[in-house]
Structure formats: C-alpha cells, structure tokens
Simulated scan of single mutants.
Amino acid sequence: MVNITLIAGARPNFMKIAPIIHAIHQVRESGREMDYRLVHTGQHYDPKMSGDFFEQLQIPHPHINLEAGGGSQAQQTAAIMVGFEKELENFKPDVVLVVGDVTSTLACSITAKKMQVQVVHVEGGIRSWDMSMPEEINRMVTDSITDHFFTTTELANENLINYGVPERKIHWVGNTMIDTLLKEMPNLKQPHGEIYDRLKEKSYFVLTLHRPANVDQEEKLKAMMEAILEGSGELPIVFPVHPRTAKVLKNLGIEHPRLHYTEPLSYLEFNYLVQNARGVITDSGGITEEASVMNVPCLTLRDNTERPETITQGTNELVGTDPSKLKPYMEKILEGNWKQYRGILLWDGHSATRIVEKLWQIYGEKKRVTQG
C-alpha cells in the first residue's frame, strides 16, 4: 500500500488537489493499492469552501483541519508546523504531496522533511524572481528540499535544472488546475442575483485584486480603480471582493453605477463569469491560467509573473502596477483586437493521471521490491 498525504491550505489548492484525488481512485480501481489522507491546514477560511464547494469538485471533506488560520505569517507558519507534526506522528505516510506556493506548502514541506518523510511538489520550479512576494520565498524554500518535482512547463524544468536538480527528479506533467477547469467547464453556472441577470455575454469585465502591492496603499488602489473605470468604456465591472481588499475599499468609498461589488463566488460561478466576460483584470496567477485556456483576454496588474506561458502562449498581458499604463490595453480589448490562446503543452486535462502514475512508479514499485 502506498500512502500519500495531500496538503491544501487555501482555496486554489483544492482545485489542484481534486484531480489528483480522482486519479488515485482510478488507480485503486485498477487493483493497485494506493490510499490518501487529505489535510486542510485551515490557512484560509472561506465560507464558499463549505459543503457545496466539495460537492462541486466531487471530493470528500478533509480528513482533518489543522485550524491554523489567522495571525502573522510567522505565527501561521508555526501553527501549521506544530499541527502537521502531530498529524505525521499519528499518520506517517510514504510521501507528502504539496501544491502551489502558499504558506502551507512551505510549512508542511519543512515539517515532513524533518520527520524523514519524502516531499513531492506539484507546480515545482515556477519563478517570478521577486523576493518581495511571500509566495516566491515559499517556492524557493520548498523546492530546495523537495524529493520529486511535478512541473507545469518546460521553463519550470529549466529553472530546476539551473539550480542543480537532477533531471530524474523532475517530471513534466502539465497543470492540474487546468484538469479541474476542463472537467468542470460543462458544469459552469450563472450566479444568482439581479446583477448577474443583467449582464450580457462578452459585455462586462471581471476584476479581482488582493495582492498587498495593489490593495494596501489607499491612494494607489484609488488611482487603479479610477483607471479601470475610465478604461472600461460603458461596460459594467463585476468585482468579487477579497476580504483583504474589502476593508480598504470601504475606507475609500469608491462607488460607480457600473462598478458592482459582490461576495466571493463559488468555483463554478466565478469561472462562468470569466468564460463569458469581455476581459479579466486581475493580480492572481491562477486566474491568468484559467482565462487563457478559456480564450478570454486577461490583464495582470503586477510587475512580474511566475506564469510567463500565459503571456507567450495564452491571452494574458503583464500591465504592471502603474495605473497610467492600463488604458491602451483596455482599449484593445474593447476593440476586439486581442491575441488568441495558442495552447500550452500538456495542459490537456490529464496532468493528475500522469502524477499518480509516476507516484506509483516511484513509491509503489519501490515498496513491492522492498517487500518482495
């Protein structure tokens, strides 16, 4: 029996984990002995990640929630490590699988390695080279102690090789976030509410903002919001507001008849909005991937990205954080003169299958030889 502990701490992690769970079930149905334990660190609490969220992704509720949310980054990292150490004392797996670049990824990787448990990193090797981002530190530290890397692109492979990682530890598999998107696209659904009933297909923008560089400085956020309103013509802007951003927006009192603040949406509802939008304005990395695959124009309000493939082969453009740079991009979207998705290798809906097959090859076959 190969036992895998799967780590998720924030909402996007579950989109990346869900197809891996489905692939493990398929392996088990084929007669091979593989089991998993899903650990939610509790890093982020999201009401939209209650029962309906797990039903939408068709995955079971976590086996345990470490309830390590809140506090500073250091406090949260420490709380996750303490909680996960107890978890590993009670249930020691053959391997711990972490995804992405959140605090939980870093904390659980360190804890596992110190307890002599192997670590595999799904989405290993991606880099923004911006050390002011907590996520970049999480990526670099996690990758420095990882045993096997499951990568999304050739560029991620090259980054790891340049660090001296042996090629036998690097497995190019694609993007499990896109596995979930492709599987769920037939199930996307319009959110309930008068705002959404009034929206016309390809006649509105979707906006998301949450990064400290964009939302923590009130004057900067105000200037960006004004630039977005100015550049959007007569089209509505739908803004599902992250709790971090809501506090600042409330202080600023930014309101406009075309600007619609909404509660955070479920996975199926949010991606319905993206799929039918004229364009997306965001500072999220994951949304740039989803928008690209859905062939929806995307503007990233950041000065760098760890997902350059969404620019070279996708529908994303890196605008930066200067509000004055935004208008020409939005005009181009309004004119309908935007690049098309060119396809990204191995972003085909089968990444999780490749991951689980490789895990069986690495750990299952090894166990059979050892026990045999």
Rank of each mutant, 00 (worst) to 15 (best):
M185V: 15
R211A: 03
R198V: 08
N214T: 02
H256I: 01
V215N: 03
E255L: 11
H260V: 12
L221C: 06
G233I: 01
I228K: 00
D216W: 09
I195R: 07
G193Y: 10
Q217T: 15
L188W: 07
P212M: 04
E234Q: 13
P243E: 02
P243N: 05
E218W: 07
R244A: 04
R258S: 10
Y196R: 05
V206H: 04
S203I: 04
I237H: 03
P191W: 13
M225S: 02
Q217D: 12
P191K: 07
L221Y: 03
H242F: 01
V274M: 10
V241K: 07
K202P: 08
Y267Q: 07
T208V: 09
G231A: 07
L229T: 11
I195Y: 09
S232F: 00
P264L: 06
K200C: 02
F270N: 01
L221P: 11
Y196I: 07
R198H: 14
P212W: 10
G253N: 06
L259W: 01
F239G: 00
Q190I: 11
S203H: 14
V238G: 08
I228W: 05
F205V: 03
N251A: 15
M224Q: 11
K200Q: 14
G253A: 05
H192Y: 11
I237A: 09
G193L: 03
A246F: 03
P264Q: 13
Y267W: 09
P236Q: 04
Y261K: 15
Q217C: 05
L259E: 04
E255A: 09
V215K: 00
E218K: 10
M225V: 11
N251V: 09
T245A: 00
Q217W: 10
Y261D: 07
G233S: 12
E255N: 15
I228F: 04
L273T: 02
L252C: 05
H242A: 00
L209M: 13
L273G: 06
P236T: 02
F205G: 00
E226L: 08
P186D: 08
A246K: 15
V238M: 02
I254C: 02
Y204F: 08
H192K: 14
L199G: 02
Y267N: 02
V248N: 04
A223R: 14
M224D: 08
V215A: 01
H210N: 10
H242Y: 01
K247P: 05
P257T: 14
K202G: 03
A227E: 05
H192M: 13
